[in-house]
Design a protein around this nucleic acid. Structure first.
Lengths: 350, 350
DNA sequence: AATCTACATGGTAACGTTACCATAATATCA
DNA sequence: TGATATTATGGTAACGTTACCATGTAGATT
């Protein structure tokens, strides 16, 4: 494989001059430019970014660590990240943790070995250790979607609490009193915030007993929680105890809920209302009908990346001065899209 | 950031000795081992893989270039790749071309700059230039899913022709005579092969006129082709010309077809039968009912990776001898899963 | 005529690691 | 007892690039 030395020799210049032409940095006469370019062409020279990065102390690579690439919400976030990054000349490495702490830590180790310039992290669990590791290695970090208890850091997230509050209010407004929330894992701030928003609305409405189910942000968990919600009522022997509305706290949980309701012969929205956080994948629904709270996923990715990039610049310019800058928290609004999955509750048939 | 020199100094050994401990290569006394490990711990040392790779001429990185990460078929392939790779100590970089030649070439350039050890490529179009580029750079390559005209290369793919033949036979066996295939882009071998298999079955059955629609492997294209197939019949003014069955040649086309049929009020399978290549994402269907030809996606990814890894070994061991090894073509079988989307055709109401 | 600036090119060293070779002590063997 | 492995450690150079500094020319400015 040809090196820049070969190129330089063939063009009859010094390596550093070839470098200047290739990177369009510094001066070079038009004549030299052409000779170098021709040599590059002729030898099929491709710069070695390992050597480049080793010398220049930057890799032009960012990492996005998220929990589930399968989920279109994250796919959209990723697109926002990629667009913003590539616009600034950065590449992005995507890593998938499946919500597993251990996978996350393996990836972090790998990424730091590769000396990525910055990390965007959707933390798998509230495990502060990983963040300390990144801090220790002096790699700029921006959190996405989830706060971490006791950790101050730059973060871009959505107003989960507010969105959940609004969505619950919507259900309450249609007359529902027995609303069950099917939520994500405790300790994940976005899950906790949605439960909090739900509870606020429920308590404000003077309903004494919230109905909270906690599981994972997955289809199967959504299925199980729905069965549990339906079954709890059956167990008590009185259908009047069944929730008249479900609040799925993410899109996958909503899909699981739909499956469970279908399997149980419960029609939406005729027999039961359903609302969800996050829109469903276009592929999922033959026809969208679910009333949802939508997060600006693309924008989340974009803004997080921009924040990270400014941090990189900060770090580069103020390499000597170790002024402790305050962290930034960007909270994006959530929009409610009303469709046709909510109706006033049926008068229960006892 | 600490270097191996710092570690060595703190442990009171030479850098090379520290290196040996860290990589568990070569000899080192237990006592030295401990001292080095402690120094690593104390300094928070993380090896610099840029320097490592620059020196050792291997990055332990593979690249998987595919056309649509959004499609669960490819997600599954990717998982197969990742599992096989990580088992051998390799990392995988995933790149998404969206079927765009230009994006593919940009990624290839980037990957070769990063000196990935090998490339798994789902070629976006039959553009031989890209492959020549990779060859010229001496990077081992395995194609996935799609042959390229006039290019000899290692490849792992499925028996698209045979699978399409079987699926078409299945439709024929139920009495269908007017079967339309909704296919992918011409020039993409898997698309062409499926059309070929379909044609073979159609012609064998003595049907003079195949009904072929060609588009993209996307939901919207599936939607459009379905409208065209239904509309062609409408245009001719005779419903008897409408196909009684559709053959969607991948999962996304099938989803588009389902949407279009739903929007047109055509019930599946009561009014029209539908069969598809690739299973639909679990998320898509509340309840799976589509009869499909399933490719062993995970296995494809796994085997392609293993083939690539053996090529790496070959290249490493026979660095001097330039014996031209013959290329390998691995063709995996396709399985038919019968569900409930096919019925004998209705007697057409004229 | 002296000074300055923009342009053009090159030399040397360094980034952090490991390949390769060398040395030496101890253990094993015939 | 000498020869041969095995174990343990280190020195030097090189991987391919660019940062940093130096040099020189030509034209512009005083």
């Amino acid at each position: 494989m040809a090196t820049i030395r070969d190129v330089a020799k063939l063009a009859g210049v010094a390596p550093i001059t070839a470098s200047r032409v290739i990177n369009t940095s510094g001066y070079a006469s038009e004549e030299v430019r052409q000779r170098v370019r021709q040599a590059v062409e002729q030898l099929g020279y491709v710069p070695n970014s390992l050597a480049r990065s080793l010398r220049s102390h930057q890799t032009l690579m960012l990492a996005l660590i998220l929990t589930d690439v399968t989920n279109p919400f994250w796919t959209t976030v990723a697109r926002g990240v990629e667009d913003a990054a590539s616009q600034a000349g950065f590449n992005v490495i995507f890593c998938n943790t499946d919500e597993a702490q251990e996978k996350q830590d393996r990836y972090l180790e790998m990424l730091i070995q590769k000396r990525v310039d910055g990390i965007l992290l959707v933390p798998a669990r509230s495990h502060a250790q990983s963040i300390r590791f990144i801090r220790q290695q002096n790699v700029p970090l921006v959190l996405l979607d989830r706060r971490l208890l006791g950790i101050d850091a730059d973060i871009v997230r959505c107003d989960s609490e507010g969105g959940a509050y609004q969505l619950t209010r919507l259900l309450l407004g249609r007359g529902h009193r027995r609303i069950a929330i099917l939520s994500g894992p405790p300790g994940v701030s976005s899950a906790d915030d949605r439960v909090a928003g739900y509870c606020r609305a429920i308590l404000e409405a003077g309903i004494p007993q919230p109905l909270i189910y906690r599981g994972e942000f997955t289809i199967s968990s959504g299925y199980q929680m729905t069965c549990a919600a339906l079954g709890a009522a059956a167990g008590s022997g009185r259908a009047v105890n069944a929730p008249s509305a479900l609040f799925a706290s993410n899109n996958f949980i909503a899909i699981g809920a739909l499956k469970a309701l279908h399997d149980s012969g419960v029609a939406v929205p005729d027999a039961l209302s359903l609302a969800a956080f996050d829109d469903l994948p276009a592929a999922t629904m033959i026809e969208p009908f679910l009333t949802v709270a939508v997060q600006p996923a693309y924008e989340m990715g974009r803004q997080a990346t921009q924040l990270l990039l400014t941090r990189l610049n900060d770090a580069a310019s103020a390499a000597n001065t170790s002024v402790h800058r305050s962290f930034q928290e960007i909270i994006l609004p959530v929009a409610i899209i009303e469709r046709r999955s909510i109706r006033p509750p049926q008068i229960p048939v006892v």
